[in-house]
């Protein structure tokens, strides 16, 4: 039986991380603009913004590198 080309695991990881990164980044920006009444410890460093950005970049790198439709990839 002939099988279709299997998507690499890295694409799933990249897509999920990119979505997570954007969600965390946007939430972080909102919290930066409108600080919550009870901030977390070390919130002055805005870890949600930087961590969200990092996760987005990692996710996008994986998505671009393993995007299956840009060219045929050998098995």
């Amino acid at each position: 039986m002939e099988k279709s080309h299997q998507l690499p695991i890295w694409l799933f990881i990249g897509a999920l991380l990119a979505v997570y990164g954007v969600i965390i980044l946007v939430t972080g920006i909102v919290n930066w603009v409108n600080p919550p009444a009870n901030p977390m410890a070390m919130s002055q460093l805005h870890p949600d913004v930087w961590w969200g950005l990092l996760i987005t970049v990692i996710g996008l790198i994986y998505c671009v590198k393993y995007w299956p439709w840009k060219k045929s990839r050998p098995e």
Partner: peptide, 11 residues
């Protein structure tokens, strides 16, 4: 609970 706010806590 000390460091992770909304979004990060979900992660």
């Amino acid at each position: 609970s000390r460091y992770l706010g909304p979004g990060l806590l979900g992660l």
